[in-house]
């Protein structure tokens, strides 16, 4: 085919590749956050953002500093961390057991999956009053709220992860005469681990979200209760300080799971 100008002259081939390969630039991400916060502060100082609508970052930082200085931060955090750890562990353990059973045994699969499908979409927050009747106004109902919220996604992640273990590896185990227990321990569990750990990322976030709901009722301490009280008082700097704490908590948990993945999934 002749070139558009019909000359047939020698010319470079136009480049059509490249792109579609975004790179991670952590520094750019951090810089974006810093610039946004700086703009926010500048807007507040210039009076463009009324403090009633959005307190300045400096005010939030001051609230956070006072919270830390007075020992309040640690008091609230320790109460919340205990609930998170208890609720998450309980929900995760139960979810792993049910998920494994559903992933391995025909008899357990349909019953448990149908129950999960029926109950998973229920907003756990709506069940809080029921939990108070069942488990009391103390720690029981709070841990139950978080545990239940964690349980269902864990079941779903675990079943999916077990289903995702390549069947050829299981056949290999059978062909080498491994016992059923050995196949579960040496092939199914390690094979499902990446999927289960991905589930952990989700459930850790859910646990933190539900923390606020769990601490709605009867909590004297806790970062969720603190945020609710601050919101109720329209103490917006404290409210945002609490949200910053929750967000940092989320980042921390995500980082911890990342470390766990790097350690347990070094083979990937």
């Amino acid at each position: 085919m002749p070139p558009p100008d019909g000359s047939g002259a020698e010319r470079p081939v136009p480049f059509r590749g490249g792109g579609f390969a975004p790179h991670a630039r952590p520094l750019l991400g951090a810089a974006t956050l810093v610039v946004l916060v700086a703009l926010w502060q500048a807007g507040a100082m210039a009076g463009l953002i009324p403090r009633l609508f959005l307190p300045a970052p400096a005010a939030v930082a001051a609230a956070l500093y006072n919270l830390a200085l007075s020992g309040q931060l640690w008091l609230q955090m320790s109460a919340s961390l205990a609930r998170l750890a208890g609720g998450w562990s309980l929900g995760t353990l139960a979810g792993l057991l049910v998920g494994l059973a559903a992933g391995l045994f025909t008899l357990a699969r349909s019953p448990s999956l149908s129950v999960v499908a029926a109950l998973f979409p229920i907003p756990k927050i709506a069940l809080v009053p029921l939990f108070i009747i069942w488990f009391g106004i103390g720690e029981g109902s709070k841990i139950a709220t978080i545990a239940l919220g964690v349980f269902f996604p864990t079941v779903i992640a675990t079943v999916g992860a077990v289903d995702g273990v390549p069947r050829n590896l299981i056949r290999m185990g059978q062909s080498f005469g491994l016992s059923r227990a050995a196949i579960v321990a040496k092939i199914v569990l390690p094979g499902a681990l990446p999927g289960i750990l991905t589930g952990f990322r989700v459930t850790a976030a859910i646990a933190i979200i539900l923390l606020v709901a769990a601490e709605m009722i009867g909590a004297e301490r806790g970062i969720g209760a603190f945020v609710l009280a601050a919101g109720n008082l329209y103490d917006t700097p404290a409210l945002l300080a609490g949200i910053v704490v929750l967000s940092v908590l989320g980042l921390l948990v995500s980082w911890l799971i990342g470390r766990l993945e790097r350690w347990l999934l070094a083979w990937r």
């Binding site: 009053p129 009747i133 009391g136 709605m216 009722i217 009867g218 004297e220 609710l228």
Partner: peptide
Amino acid sequence: VHLRVVQTVPNMVAAVQSGQV
């Protein structure tokens, strides 16, 4: 006094009714 935050008025009454507070 140990304050128990329960968010709503029905919750407050229910908490007394059930002896939780």
